[in-house]
Amino acid sequence: MAEPGGVAGDQLRAFVERIERLEEEKKVIADDIKDVYAEAKGNGFDVKILRKVVSLRKKKPEEREEEDAVLDLYMHALGMIGAAPESNY
């Protein structure tokens, strides 16, 4: 039933409570992930690289190839790696 201002209070409250529960679950999961990274670090793994690997595994191969090509181009332009291959165009 609509209340003053056209807002169904019970429905709104239900949405807010669901969001709050999900936010709490998200926090618990984030804490669990943090614990796994800490465990990996304790076993000698480089957490920064591990995060990068997880990030890369989320991407499609063609996305990774495109990013690698652009990164290579930028690094060449900045002189961070050898000269860019000559173009025959």
Score class of each variant (00 low, 15 high):
residue 66 E to H: 08
residue 53 V to N: 02
residue 7 V to G: 00
residue 86 E to H: 04
residue 78 L to S: 10
residue 60 K to I: 00
residue 85 P to H: 05
residue 48 K to F: 08
residue 79 G to E: 00
residue 49 I to F: 10
residue 13 R to K: 15
residue 23 E to R: 13
residue 40 A to N: 07
residue 40 A to V: 03
residue 19 I to N: 00
residue 33 I to K: 06
residue 70 V to L: 08
residue 24 E to S: 14
residue 1 M to Y: 14
residue 16 V to T: 04
residue 50 L to E: 11
residue 80 M to A: 11
residue 58 K to M: 11
residue 16 V to E: 01
residue 14 A to G: 04
residue 21 R to G: 02
residue 69 A to R: 14
residue 36 V to K: 11
residue 6 G to I: 00
residue 84 A to R: 10
residue 18 R to Q: 07
residue 32 D to K: 12
residue 63 E to S: 05
residue 66 E to C: 01
residue 70 V to H: 11
residue 48 K to N: 06
residue 66 E to Q: 09
residue 1 M to S: 14
residue 89 Y to L: 10
residue 53 V to A: 08
residue 14 A to W: 05
residue 20 E to R: 08
residue 34 K to T: 15
residue 36 V to M: 08
residue 64 R to D: 00
residue 70 V to R: 10
residue 84 A to S: 10
residue 60 K to L: 06
residue 31 D to E: 13
residue 32 D to F: 11
residue 16 V to G: 00
residue 64 R to C: 06
residue 71 L to N: 12
residue 62 E to W: 05
residue 59 K to T: 04
residue 46 D to P: 01
residue 3 E to W: 12
residue 35 D to I: 07
residue 57 R to V: 00
residue 7 V to Q: 08
residue 72 D to A: 09
residue 58 K to W: 13
residue 53 V to Q: 05
residue 48 K to G: 13
residue 52 K to P: 01
residue 50 L to Y: 02
residue 74 Y to I: 15
residue 87 S to N: 07
residue 54 V to S: 03
residue 28 V to H: 13
residue 76 H to R: 10
